[in-house]
Design a protein around this nucleic acid. Structure first.
Lengths: 222, 222
DNA sequence: GCTTAAGTTAACTCAATGTTAAGTCGAACT
DNA sequence: AGTTCGACTTAACATTGAGTTAACTTAAGC
């Protein structure tokens, strides 16, 4: 079960959101201000922190910075809750390292679908894909750089490359690739993966992805 | 520790706000009118001046102008305190060089959050978003300059551009754009974002905003 | 050599996005 | 009050290109 830390200074909001999120099947902890949020993040290692922007003692931005600066803790996904009126602080949030925004007033349905989406995406902290010099993969800009030349990749190609590069040397089976990049719902044909691999090789050169026949594909460790 | 100059002609207000702000960990000085405010600004070089609009001897607007015109002193962030009714004077305040408004009656928590936000924000005019020369976005004057030619943008377009430019290269999803620029109250149609993107491209040229199909939009880092 | 996995190519499909023009609404002006 | 204006939204339609498929070729392993 995934853990979520909920941070707001208003008890009503906490109660309501806790109820809403628990019903969806998550484990919820709460904090009342930024200081508590930082402490509990360290203590509980939540996967996701939902935090109000305006709080006494330490506001959302400060807490965000504090969490991001503490490299010894496992980095949660941080999403800030904000009122539409306080618009100038919104941009500061991204600078502070927040991953997403959720605008108040909060619609429960929307909130849950956002939470699900945020938690479904690749683990932000772990396994930074690839730094070895030649190739650089940046998820936030959806951009790949090869020898400092930028290469724009379409979504699926990017995600496929990102997956392979997240563990250089590890061989991913077609099944694994299919369920991670395509999801279990999509039933696509046998050759679809091949074609995407081909497109990647076309753009990056043949050296980066190695076929392990009968098993799958791997990102080449030189 | 950051220094704040508090200016109001009512002793009650001064006492209450001084207490509130000191508790948050700022150094607070006070002044009783605009004249004093200018003098103490020169003397103390505060980071932030919180000033009532209506005062005897010299009002907030005049003091604001006096401070802005004195180029030999380090420019503080100026935020004016105003009653909701006198909102017509807000325009004059911005013209006079104020950075922000805080409406009376003052809610302590809101005030503190605003102060925190203001003091984190670079002094007005000093571009946070975008440095590359061609495009200059100035939030305080709500104005965009492209190759030194001024471009006036309506609110939504400005906010959209500001968001994208706040993190050049980062791809913002439609969801994120929607909740930040529009907020969750407004449920607008599918094509609304596209149209605003189009208007921006029309005015700025196509080079600045890149579409990442299936993901979102990004401000281009050439 | 036979079998099967993977590579290749080009055509196809459809959802995502682009575009245009017209409609709505509120603010400013007369 | 009526009028004008422009921001914002909507709706209808056009376009694009990512993703997929199909048909065929090549390579690997026994």
């Amino acid at each position: 079960m995934q853990t979520i830390l909920l941070v707001d200074d208003e008890q009503d909001v906490l109660d309501f959101l806790t109820y809403t999120i628990q019903k969806e099947g998550y484990r919820v902890f709460t904090a009342r201000n930024g200081k508590e949020a930082v402490d509990k993040t360290i203590e509980l290692s939540p996967k996701l922190v939902l935090m109000d922007l305006m709080m006494p003692i330490m506001d959302g931005i400060e807490a965000c910075i504090a969490i991001r600066n503490n490299t010894s803790i496992s980095q949660p996904i941080i999403s800030l809750l904000t009122s539409r009126s306080e618009d100038y602080s919104q941009i500061a949030g991204f600078d502070a390292g927040a991953d997403d925004y959720i605008a108040k007033p909060i619609r429960p349905r929307l909130l849950l679908s956002k939470i699900n989406a945020l938690l479904r995406r690749p683990i932000s902290g772990e396994a930074q894909p690839e730094q070895d010099g030649r190739l650089h993969i940046d998820r936030s800009s959806y951009l790949v750089r090869l020898d400092n030349e930028r290469i724009e990749l379409p979504k699926k190609e990017f995600e496929l490359l990102e997956l392979l590069a997240s563990r250089p040397g590890k061989v991913f089976t077609r099944d694994q690739i299919m369920s991670i990049v395509w999801g279990n719902e999509a039933i696509v044909g046998e050759r679809t993966i091949d074609v995407h691999i081909r497109k990647l090789r076309e753009k990056l050169g043949n050296d980066y992805i190695r076929t392990v026949k009968g098993v799958g594909y791997t990102y080449n460790t030189i």
